[in-house]
Design a binder for these strands. Structure first.
Length: 425
RNA sequence: GGAGCGAUGCCCGAGUGGACGAAGGGACCCGGCUGGAAACCGGGUAGGGCUCAAAAAGCCCUCCGGGGUUCGAAUCCCCGUCGCUCCGCCA
């Protein structure tokens, strides 16, 4: 959520910056500005009346003790009270509409974000490693997984429908090993605190991180209990300290969390239909930081490095991409994607996305910190990034480590997590 | 799922219709005392909004959240959320 004051006082700036995302928000912003004006007018009026009522009510109390007649004043105040109720009701309507609209406004891109229409405007920041040369035609991971009997697409679909899959034997073990490897790396070497949180959350959590109200179609909803399945642990972890005022000396808070992620992929019919890269349920290890505005961009850089470290240790070639304004997510001010090389698919594949949301989410969830003793609270900055997507990492391992004979030689760093197993097949 | 009880400031806790943003205690901060400290003494310590260029100041709101009754609500009524206790069920 953007600061209403910013929208009010720098309307043109806000419109222009939002416009760089590729959609026009002028009309929405104009509606917000005019509702805000209306709101302030009503407030001025109703507060005057309340002030008067407070004074007179006190006086009535005093007069009653003195045995004076107060019927006339009482009657007058009853009328004032009616007016207040009317105005308050009006104000509630205006405020709820204002809030509703404001929740649909995306975050303002950071000034360092390149302006561009779509992913063609993204900038490659750096590349790590080189795509391996194969002396045979490398296969895509879905063929490898099926041939080795470690990924079961058919039965995943039998159980739950399209875009679900199952793992078996060393496939299941590898998935689990990857999760543990990533969690250990981030807790032991990068200083994150591990948390394990609910996968089902209240609607206000989804609103807090920006999935609701705009992206309800993308998520699974348990209607009976009005709970939502998280599309990423970003939701549960970032909301962990919602409505709190944190001490500055505790910042930055750095959390890492494993979670299953659930996505309806509503707008992706027919896209990436093969393999495990676009499915309704997948595992992810997520990084979240809560920090100060002064530190947040440094923290974004180090978060990207922490995520890349996973891929470096796995010796998977990857590159870091700075997203342009048109490719930026709703809540983000600045985002780096990390893309891994998939020799079987012959393309780069997003395996992590690290964003600084500045105070956009913090404002939605009322997450603040106190810069120093006695100071006014300020909104914190929140960051999130995959560290990294587990299913896609498994796919990348299958494709990058495949051998001519169809077997997989497992990355060395995983061997302690695989009880010494060195290859599959 | 049933029954009952509860939610007050940073923490504990009083208040059950009128001067209450809220007694008292603790904690913390500042000052005094001291060679220094403890004890003691004095003072202070919530959030949001509106008016405003801003500051200052004033006003409004907030005693879990939302409605209502009333001239006036922390206090009375209704709804919701969360917590506790007992019963039932359950991995």
């Amino acid at each position: 959520m953007l600061d209403l004051r910013l929208i009010r006082e720098q309307t043109e700036f806000v419109k222009e910056r939002l416009g760089s995302r590729g959609d026009n928000y002028d009309e929405l912003i104009d509606q917000i500005v005019s509702l805000d004006e209306k709101r302030r007018k009503i407030i001025a009026e109703v507060e005057n009346l309340k002030h008067r009522r407070n004074l007179v009510s006190k006086e009535i109390g005093v007069m009653m003790k003195e045995g004076k007649d107060v019927t006339a004043l009482r009657e007058e105040m009853r009328q004032v009270g009616d007016q207040i109720n009317e105005l308050d009701a009006l104000l509630r309507n205006v405020e709820s509409e204002l809030e509703r609209l404001t929740l649909f406004v995306p975050n303002i891109p950071h000034e360092s974000v390149p302006v561009g229409r779509d992913e063609s405007g993204n900038k490659i920041v750096r590349v790590w490693g080189e795509p391996k040369e194969f002396d045979f035609e490398p296969k895509p991971h879905w063929e490898i997984g099926e041939e080795l009997g470690i990924i079961d697409f058919y039965r995943g679909v039998k159980l739950s429908g399209s875009r679900f899959y199952g793992l078996k034997g060393l496939g299941a073990t590898l998935e689990r090993a990857l999760i543990n490897f990533m969690l250990d790396l981030h807790t032991k070497e990068h200083g994150y605190t591990e948390v394990f949180l609910p996968f089902l959350v209240k609607p206000y959590c989804m609103e807090g991180t920006g999935q609701l109200p705009k992206f309800s179609e993308e998520m699974y909803w348990c209607e009976r209990d009005n709970l939502w399945l998280i599309p990423t642990a970003e939701v549960s972890v970032t909301n962990l300290h919602r409505e709190e005022i944190l001490d500055a000396e505790d910042l930055p808070l750095k959390y890492v969390s494993y979670s299953a992620c659930f996505r309806r992929e509503a707008g992706a019919a027919g896209k990436d239909i093969k393999g495990v890269i676009r499915v309704h349920q997948f595992n992810k290890v997520e990084l979240v930081k809560i920090t100060t505005p002064e530190q947040s961009y440094e923290e974004l850089e180090s978060m990207v490095r922490d995520a890349c470290h996973v891929l470096e240790l796995l010796k998977l070639p990857h590159r870091v991409v700075l997203l342009c304004t048109g490719d930026l997510g709703f809540s983000a001010s600045k985002t780096y994607d990390i893309e891994v090389w998939m020799p079987g698919m012959n393309r780069w594949l997003e395996i992590s996305s690290c964003s600084n949301c500045e105070d956009f989410q913090a404002r939605r969830m009322n997450l603040r910190y106190r810069p120093y003793r006695g100071a006014k609270p300020r909104y914190a900055h929140t960051l999130n990034g995959s560290g990294v997507a587990v299913g896609r990492t498994m796919a990348a391992i299958l494709e990058n480590y495949q051998q001519k004979d169809g077997s997989i030689v497992l990355p060395e760093v995983l061997r302690t997590y695989l009880k010494g197993v060195e290859r599959i097949g």
